[in-house]
Computed example of a mutant assay.
Amino acid sequence: MKKFILFVLGLAALMVLLANMGPMILLAVSVWLLYVVFKQFMKADSLGKKIGWTILGLFILSITFSNIFAVMGLVAAYGLYLIYKEWKQDKHSDSYTSDQSDPFVNFEREWAELNK
């Protein structure tokens, strides 16, 4: 039942991620443009150029902050990562049949594999 719930949650997160792929790309482009504007601002010599780069940077920053859907896509991507990690953890926990609290059981298993 747990795997089914993880599958359904993963499917929903994947749909949200795919639906918000466009805004996520726009967010990445706007963050890159902010980086370029900042570099050009630092290179500018005159006050007029610095003011121009600041105005352009504020305009791009407003585009960046308007992408709330991209943030939802990032949250969905992080949710997919957590679901994948939980799925893998369940897979590994099923393979161990020995008592994990006894340190000698693990030692005996490792010693037996070394002696093969």
Score class of each variant (00 low, 15 high):
Val29Arg: 06
Gln40Ile: 15
Ser30Ile: 08
Ala28Met: 09
Met21Asp: 04
Phe65Val: 12
Leu80Asn: 01
Ala12Cys: 05
Leu58Cys: 08
Gly73Ala: 00
Val71Cys: 01
Val75Met: 11
Leu14Val: 07
Glu108Ile: 14
Asp102Glu: 13
Ile51Leu: 12
Leu47Arg: 11
Glu110Asn: 07
Lys50Gly: 11
Met21Asn: 05
Ile60Trp: 04
Ala13Met: 02
Ser66Lys: 13
Ser66Ala: 03
Ser95Arg: 12
Leu17Met: 15
Tyr81Thr: 14
Gly22Ala: 04
Ser101Gly: 10
Leu18Trp: 07
Phe38Pro: 10
Phe38Ile: 12
Met42Cys: 06
Ser66Cys: 05
Arg109Gln: 09
Met42Thr: 15
Ile5Gly: 02
Ile25Asn: 00
Ser66His: 05
Glu110Phe: 15
Ala28Asn: 03
Ala19Pro: 04
Leu17Arg: 07
Lys39Phe: 15
Val31Pro: 03
Gly10Trp: 00
Tyr35Val: 13
Asp90Ser: 01
Lys49Ser: 14
Ser101Trp: 09
Val105Asp: 09
Phe7Cys: 03
Val8Tyr: 08
Ala44Ile: 09
Ala12Gln: 04
Lys50Cys: 09
Phe38Leu: 15
Asp94Asn: 06
Trp87Cys: 01
Lys2Thr: 11
Met15Glu: 09
Tyr78Lys: 09
Leu33Lys: 07
Val75Ser: 02
Lys116Ile: 11
Ala112Cys: 11
Ala77Thr: 05
Leu14Thr: 07
Ser62Cys: 13
Leu17Asp: 06
Leu47Trp: 15
Pro23Thr: 01
Leu80Asp: 00
Leu47Phe: 12
Leu17His: 05
